[in-house]
Design a protein around this nucleic acid. Structure first.
Lengths: 182, 182
DNA sequence: TTATTTACGACACACAGTGTAGCAAAACTG
DNA sequence: CAGTTTTGCTACACTGTGTGTCGTAAATAA
């Protein structure tokens, strides 16, 4: 199938937008292929010419988003200040919040930020701190807890600014020492 | 339907065991009602006499487990040492690991430990520490990150003892000060 | 033990969602 | 404009869900 053909591009765009819209409205599980083709105004067979099923469509959307995120974060920038990549992650999340909220309630929920954070931590791009705890456990913990806070932020309609969130994440997870009162 | 009737009890038990077995083998999503009734050796209609669907069956299993967990933790025991409830949670998790692993890959994944931890934290039964961070965010953070570490522990076949895990959780999340090297 | 209740298995069936196939019409490319 | 490719339409096979009926077997109650 020729991806240069305008018809192909149009159909693909329609399918993606319809899918995101439907996930946002009804949740991933309740969306059927028939829903998607109706919302997109596209024939049954046409859908299956483009994707094997709704999971494949989800994956295509996810891969594109991962690609954009990687470009934004730019891992090769090792000389970034430690919290810069975190700030950039939050900016990207906010800019694509509709998509993130939709994906958060799909099987792709843990395939976006978490693996990227974990990789960043393991490669030492985000921060490093030695602890008397097994290394894989450390990396997993920081990645999943940052991911959880960002998801909380999204789910609660981003009640705090990016700067505030970075500050909170820093205090709760990365460097909790200075926040103790006793 | 009389839950005292031996036939009812037997069928119910068969359905539960078949379901857990199937989730463990194939994952929640792939299990069908037909699978369950075949594995349990029970008629089609019989299943629906007991439960509205597989989700209702899952929920019944979950509710029973929550009940047992609550009994084990015994929130009224406010004078417990701070880490005692955490240790008890891990013990309970280990004792019911097969069930926990099955539930972890179902819609009930976040309905067991996480809410209980969050409640315990908000009520101050687990630990208290004042931070310059919004309270709801604090409670959510501690609950979800402890939950994540316990899930990691289960998923990796419990490679550390309960005592070690309590120690790691304490160092990573609850009281990270003493673990700093600098 | 006997009578009564009721849970059970088997089977048939309606319904919804998935995915495939063939063909004619429409849209795009060059 | 001519040739090619995508698309819409419709029909259909298949899987899974949930309901209805009915004769049978098992449990409870007396």
């Amino acid at each position: 199938m020729n991806t240069e053909d305008l018809r192909v591009k149009r159909t693909d765009q329609r399918l993606r937008e319809a899918f995101i819209q439907l996930i946002t409205d009804q949740g991933y599980d309740k969306v059927t292929v028939r829903d998607i083709i109706n919302q997109a105004g596209v024939g049954n067979k046409t859908f299956y010419r483009h994707y094997e099923g709704k999971e494949a469509l989800l994956n295509a959307i996810l891969q594109d988003l991962i690609h954009d995120l990687r470009k934004t974060l730019d891992y090769s920038f090792k000389d970034n200040p430690p919290l810069q990549n975190l700030t950039n992650s939050l900016k990207f999340t906010q800019a694509n919040s509709t998509l993130f909220i939709a994906l958060a309630q799909s099987p792709a929920a843990d395939e976006l930020l978490k693996p990227m954070l974990q990789a960043a931590i393991e490669e030492g791009h985000l921060f490093v701190r030695e602890m008397d705890v097994p290394k894989d456990l450390v990396a997993y913990h920081f990645a999943s807890s940052i991911d959880a806070l960002i998801k909380w932020w999204l789910k609660n309609d981003m009640p705090y600014s990016i700067e505030e969130m970075v500050d909170y994440i820093n205090k709760l997870i990365l460097n909790p020492i200075s926040t103790l009162n006793d």
